[in-house]
Every structure is written in structure tokens, then in C-alpha cells.
Nucleic acid binder design. Structure first.
Lengths: 334, 334
DNA sequence: TTGCACAATGGCAACGTTAACATTTGGGCG
DNA sequence: CGCCCAAATGTTAACGTTGCCATTGTGCAA
């Protein structure tokens, strides 16, 4: 029928409704200074023409995009899905949208992420840091572009938010000591992981704070296989009654490794993991673990940008504690 | 020093470089008809002022956003992370960005997702369908907005793409029959899952195509616990030598359930899963499973929109087959 | 009747960019 | 020496929206 018009603008609606463009605009924004009957007439015209406001014209006029950019170096990564859930939820709350960008094949620097974003329609940006960017110390956010980093490291010019990995280890160690264990063995992760390193520090320092010299740790690589090997190794050690693994996969592997050496969990050895990622996968036991609230991390980041909304809000640093979830892999020795 | 100016435009750069705005624009786009020395002068001015092109002005002029919108009803869901990886990768390839929207708290309809998108700066949209929207049959995409649905169901007006669930079951069943098993038992999923239902059909029809009447299926709920129960139930059945579970968690639960009844895997019973989601979690065996290429699904969807780039491209339907990955949970009876 | 306040609507300009067209300059060639 | 072509640059207008100010109409008090 009607030829497909490039796009319907306020002008077209105004003409059809017999009002000015301004009145159309006011109707779109539901201004109280338009007579209800006029509004209805304009709305009818909008419906008839299939009008939808043009984002570009609007942002050009307003100078804002109502959008937050998210730059990720790796999209696939534990917790990213929950973080995105948080981004989307917070954005939704503020009437914002999320623009996702993969910074990949490009150098691992904040500068690279930042310049990638600069040509996109965003009012602020979030960068998910998995490891240490080369320019972390020297980076300056783009002027007028509020920048939030998802990392534990504090940055002088950007707000930061992340899970509190140190506190996570503190909780686990104190939980186990509180149940009568004399020490806590640790299965770590590869040394290049920022969050893993912080977990390791938390384990070490909490033990020391209780006057316990940390035993030698076993280095793992996040996989259940490495946990399995670690479990077999630790099965030899009669002083080992409690094991804290850097993630659930290694914790589960460790349990199977211990069992393969004839040690029972939790009767002989207690095991705690981190991530709460095994929920529906392991049928026969509920692992004691720490659950992180990645959704909240994501929400905080977007809230910081969308919530400020132009108001110059200062740099803030936020660490969100995890929650220890009791399963049936820890024995109370008291 | 310099007061923070609202934003730097071509006009400012032009003035500083002593050229016209058009020459600045041409320099930005690296047009060959600007003298190299002029370009350099303009570039210097851009650097000095910190110019970055304004997205809104550009899109307004061009009438395109170079952005694809992704609407999700649930962000958390198996494979979504990989799909996003695909979205981002394809977008990157075409110089596009991805805008993410959560359609939540709103009715589960395509109309709802569509209207949510209509005010955003996107040239096309992808909807990830987890279950059946109420208006699937009647939905019409917004004019001028290419819409791709991620689902197995074909839609008359929108292109669709998804994993081939039917073929997945066909592969598994034929693989097991090919290894001498007389029939294949099935652990299904809840009846409201579209993809699960399609898997069930594939299992049933492939058996029938080989002249085998499908045995009674065991209904699971995606969790390892339900797989465990199913395994215990099937352990009673002496005709059961091969089990196909709708996902890996149930498959793994099933193995543990069988073992708890004294049946060994794969010596007594073969087990196959779907999803390849247990990779690093289960330490002691490699489950035979089907790996889906969700990244490719995501790429296809975005390619369809960004690749067409204005060219009127027709409605297409794409099913992407998974790949059967051999582990050590299947015994060859031949 | 005049003046005034207020409600409803309209006109105009500007946001930053770039396509289309116009102009200037320099050089080669008859 | 004049003509024409091509390279390099400039001018204008338009994309769709909305803030600001102007205009019109209406009712009411002085």
C-alpha cells in the first residue's frame, strides 16, 4: 500500500494531526500543557503512521545517550553472565541501555578499551578487567566519560567495584578454624589471576592473624583434574584435615582425589570451595562454598554511572562480600 | 587550564586548523582528496582539542546506527555467554556494536521486546527466545528493523537461527546404535522447554526410523539430582545398556546413580549427555556428549543483520548442528 | 470595558555531521 | 595565451528533536 517511507518524523505526525511539531514532542513526553483531546489526536496520528522517536535526533538535541558501555576483554569468564544480569537490571531501572564491546585482538590496555568506546553512543563506561592492563597506573578516563573498572585494585581516577576476595578467604578460614581445625590447606590458582592472588593473601594473612603459619600451598589451574591431583597429594599428609580450594571445580576434583586414596569427606577431611558453580551438576553432595553476588557487582557499576546522571560524582571503591554457603563437606571437630 | 567544554565539534577543529568543517570530516574518514599535509594539520588540531566524533550527529545524518540490539528474556541461561561472544565477534567484524536489553517484568511477548528496542539506536534486533512467546504466530517485526529470532521454530516474517536439537538426538542415537546397542533410553527435561521437546522428538523418531519402538522415557528436571534418580531407576532395567540424557548434569547424575546401584559405566551401561558443560568440573571421566556451537549461532544472527547492511535480505532459517564429542562413557558392544 | 493572568499552542533555532554541489587553484596542452 | 581538466577545498542544507520564547485564546477581577 503505502510506500515504505524512510522514517516517520514528528513533522509527519504534526501534519497529519494538524498541530505543530512542538505539540507532538510535548505529547510524546506527556506534558501537562497539552489538552487531553489534542493529545489523543496526536497519538492517533502516531499510531496511524507508526511513528517512533528517533534516537539520534533526540540524543543530538539532549547531549546524552542514556546508555552505558561495557568493555570486556574476554566475554567468557566465570560470573560474567551474572554481572551482565546486573548491568542490564540496573540499566533497566534507570531507563538506560547497555552497549557491549569486545576488546579483543587489541592490546590489553584501558586506553584501548576507552578509545574503542569513545565513538559509541554512551555516557559512561564499565571495563571488566580480568588481568592487569599494561597502563593501569597511567590511564586517564576520557573527559566527560565516567569510567568504572570491575577489579579489586583501586584506581586514583576511576571508581572500582568487585567481589571481596580477601574477605572470602577470611570467612572460609575462620569458619574452618571455628570448627576446630588446627590449620587450613589451600589449593591455589595460576599466579597471573588477580582475584586468585588476593584469595591467596586472604588465606595466608588470616591464618597468621590466628597465629598459624600457613602450610605449603598446592598450586592448581582451576580444573577439576588439578584438584584431583592436589587431593591425592594432600591425602598423604596426616595434618591435613581441612582444605580450601580456589574454586568449586578444584574442590570437587579434590574430593574425588581424596576418596580415590581412601579418605572420606567430610569424615576424614573437610573441603570448601569458592563460586557456588556446582549447584545442579554434582548429584551426591552439597559442597560448602562461597557464593559471590556478581549481579550486585554489575548493578553497582551501572548505578554509579546512570545514577549520577550528570551530577559530578566522585571516585569510589566498592568491595562486595560473598556469602559462605554451608553444604555437607565440612566436619565440625568440636 | 582550559575550561571543560561541553564537547568538541568539527567546527572547533576546523577553526583551529584553519580549514573548513568539510575538510575535517574528510580527514576523519581519511578521504584521498585531502592533501597529506592538510590532513596532518587537521589531525594535530584534533589531538590538541581532544576531538571525538559525535555518534548522534553522525547517525542522524547517516540514518544508520551501526548497532544491533539484543533482547533477552533471561540473561542467565546455558549457552548465553557463548552466544554473546558470537554477537560481539560478528559485530566487531562488521564495525557494529551490540546493545543489550533485558525484557523482564514485561510480558513474555515478541511485541514487548520489539517495542522496547524501538526507541534505541539500533538498525536491527535479535531476540533470544527461551520459551514460546504468546504472540509468536501474530508478531510482525517493526518496519525497517530486521529481526532475527534465536529459536528452532520457523517464523514467517523473521529469520531464525538455533542449534539443531533434532539432529543432536539423531547423532547420539545413531552413534549408540552403531556401537551395537539394541535401544537407547532417554532422560528428558521438563515439558515446557522448546529445545528439550525437540530433542525428545529426535530421539523418538530416530529410533523409529531404525525400526525400534522407543522405550518409556524418564522425565528429569535438568538437575543432577533428577539424573541420579533416573540412573537408579534405569539400573533395574536389564534391557538398558545405553542412556541418552538431555543435558550433562543429568548424565553425570545418572552415572553416579547407576554406580550407586552397582552398575559400572561404561562396562555395563553407556551414557551420553548434551552440552559439553562439564569439561573442567568432573575430574575422573570424560563424558561423551554433544557440543553446540552457540558462538556460531550468535554470529549468524548478527551477520544476518549487519551483513545485509541495508540490502533487503530475505527471511532465512538456520539450524546449526552440534558435534558429538567422544569421551569414555560409552562402550562399543560390537 | 480594560487589563491581566494563565492555559494552550506555534515558530524558530540549534545540537554535530556529512552528501551534494560549488568554487578555487594549478598545470598541461593546443 | 587562453582553454579545459583535475585536484583540493569551501558552502549549503538537511537529518529529527526539543528548549526557548512568542503568540493566541479564555476567563475573571478591577
Amino acid at each position: 500500500m503505502a510506500a515504505v517511507k524512510k522514517s516517520v518524523s514528528v513533522k509527519d505526525v504534526a501534519r497529519l494531526a494538524g498541530v505543530s511539531e512542538q505539540t507532538v514532542s510535548r505529547t510524546v513526553h506527556d506534558s501537562p500543557s497539552v489538552r487531553p483531546e489534542t493529545k489523543e489526536r496526536v497519538r492517533a496520528a502516531m499510531r496511524e503512521l507508526g511513528y517512533r522517536p528517533n534516537f539520534a535526533g533526540r540524543s543530538l538535541r539532549r547531549g546524552k545517550f542514556k546508555t552505558v558501555g561495557v568493555a570486556m576483554f574476554n566475554i567468557t569468564g566465570t560470573g560474567n553472565l551474572d554481572r551482565m544480569e546486573g548491568f542490564a537490571a540496573a540499566a533497566d531501572k534507570h531507563g538506560y541501555a547497555i552497549t557491549l564491546t569486545k576488546v579483543d585482538g587489541h592490546p590489553y590496555t584501558l586506553e584501548s578499551a576507552s578509545s574503542r568506546m569513545s565513538a559509541l553512543p554512551v555516557d559512561g563506561m564499565v571495563v571488566i578487567m580480568n588481568r592487569m592492563p599494561a597502563d593501569f597506573g597511567t590511564f586517564e578516563p576520557l573527559p566527560g566519560m565516567q569510567t568504572v573498572l570491575v577489579t579489586m585494585l583501586e584506581h586514583p581516577l576511576c571508581s572500582t567495584v568487585d567481589n571481596d576476595q580477601f574477605d572470602c578467604s577470611r570467612q572460609v578460614v575462620e569458619y574452618l578454624l571455628g570448627r576446630g581445625h588446627k590449620t587450613v590447606h589451600f589449593i591455589s590458582c595460576p599466579e597471573r589471576s588477580l582475584s586468585g592472588m588476593r584469595r591467596e593473601e586472604g588465606w595466608r594473612e588470616t591464618l597468621r592473624a590466628h597465629g598459624i603459619e600457613p602450610p605449603r600451598l598446592v598450586r592448581g589451574d582451576w580444573t577439576a583434574q588439578s584438584g584431583y591431583a592436589a587431593g591425592q597429594a594432600l591425602a598423604e599428609d596426616p595434618t591435613c584435615t581441612a582444605i580450601y580450594a580456589s574454586n568449586d571445580a578444584m574442590a570437587y576434583g579434590c574430593i574425588r582425589g581424596l576418596e580415590s586414596c581412601g579418605r572420606r569427606v567430610p569424615e576424614d577431611v573437610s573441603v570448601v570451595g569458592v563460586d557456588d558453580s556446582l549447584g545442579d551438576i554434582v548429584p551426591d553432595r552439597r559442597l560448602t562454598t562461597v557464593r559471590f553476588d556478581n549481579k550486585r557487582v554489575g548493578m553497582w557499576a551501572v548505578d554509579k554511572i546512570a545514577g549520577a546522571d550528570g551530577g559530578a560524582s566522585g571516585v569510589e571503591h566498592m568491595l562486595i562480600p560473598g556469602v559462605l554457603v554451608e553444604g555437607d563437606t565440612v566436619r565440625d571437630l568440636r
